[in-house]
Structure formats: structure tokens, C-alpha cells
Write a protein that binds this DNA or RNA. Sequence first.
DNA 1: CCAGGGATGGACT
DNA 2: GTCCATCCCTGGT
Length: 207
Amino acid sequence: MHEEKRKLPLHFYQSEDVISIAKSLLGKQISTNINGNVTAGIIVETEAYMGITDKASHAYNGRFTNRTKTMFEDGGITYVYLCYGIHSLLNVITGPKDTPHAVLIRAIEPTTGIDIMLQRRNMTVLKSNITKGPGALSQALGVDRDINAMDLNGDIIWIEDVSYPLNKKQIVACPRIGIDYAGEDALLPWRFYIRDNIYVSRPVKGL
DNA sequence: CCAGGGATGGACT
DNA sequence: GTCCATCCCTGGT
């Protein structure tokens, strides 16, 4: 089988429904090829950011800056930005042009190139924190701001359907992390993760 | 120019 | 549980 055929098609990303895309990305495999080093993992945690109406979004109220201009491009590219001066956070841009919706990838379950990921994370033993959390998974995949605005159907970074078994009962929806500044929007249940997966960054108690 | 703040993670108690 | 490194981005002067 030729791997190109499993890559998610452009129309997957260009739907207006960023909530559905955030849920659909669970169980998909994201891969990078950085200077010939291929690493990959199954997406197990995402958050949706709904363009100009979402107070937690960088593009809230149509904010268009040198940083956020990537969000206004056609869906199907990456958006990588620096958080807290240290961490590169990886998003998938969705929707048509000028609809700045995004899905933050918050955790993956490593599948390919674990030795390379361990090196990048400066770890010697495989533990779940290798890719637990958005900053950690970016480091493991070798993603930094050089990967910003990159085509998700290219050869550097891509997402594919690997028929990961998943049913809707395994998907937990809860409020997003670290966005207290967003007022009432901080309560929206736009964080999604796979129940009981050990790579999820902060499972909700009791679920 | 400059101050304030942040979609976090790791170390520590 | 608490603390805080670290630096770009933003908006205001």
C-alpha cells in the first residue's frame, strides 16, 4: 500500500466544523520527517479554537498580526507558536481561507521513531511524559517554529488514518486547559481526549 | 521603545 | 500541591 493514500484529504481540514474535526483527529496518526528522521504518534488529545468568536483564540475578534496571519490561510496547514517563551505548540489550521479555526494537538501516543523522540526529549527510559502535553509532543516530533504554516499533505509533516480502533464512548469532552483569561468561553467543552489513555496530559477526575 | 502576559513543563515540598 | 524559567507577541506610548 502506498502511504500517500492514507493521508487525510484536503477537504477533511476545510470543513467549517472545527469541533467535529477536533474529535475526528483523535486516533489519527501524525508524523514528521525532520532531516530524514521519521517520528510519529497517535493523536489522543485535542482542543478546538473557534476563530474570531472564541475569546481563547489568538484570532479572537479578527486579530490579524504577523503571528496569527497563518490562522487565516486555507485549512490543511500547521500553526506553530512559542508559548511561555519555551514551548512550541502545534496546531492544525482548519476551515476555508479567512476562517481562522484551529485544533491544538495536546498529546500523542508514540508509534514510530521512539529512540529519536527519547533523544530529543533528553530521556533514556520510555515514560508517558515523552509526548504528554503540547510542548512535550512538539519537542518529541522535532516541531519548532520552522514548521509553522507548513502543508499537512507534504513530506515534512502529515496526518494519516491508520484505522486506530475508537468508538464515541471513549471520547471525553471537557473544558480547555490554561485559558482562564477567556471568561465564559473557558467553560466551553472543546477539549477532547481518549478515555484511559496514559498519554493524555491531564485526565479529568472521575471520568 | 517598552511593559505585561502567556493554549507549559519540570523541579520541588 | 507550589513555584518559576524564559522570550516572543502584542498593544500602548
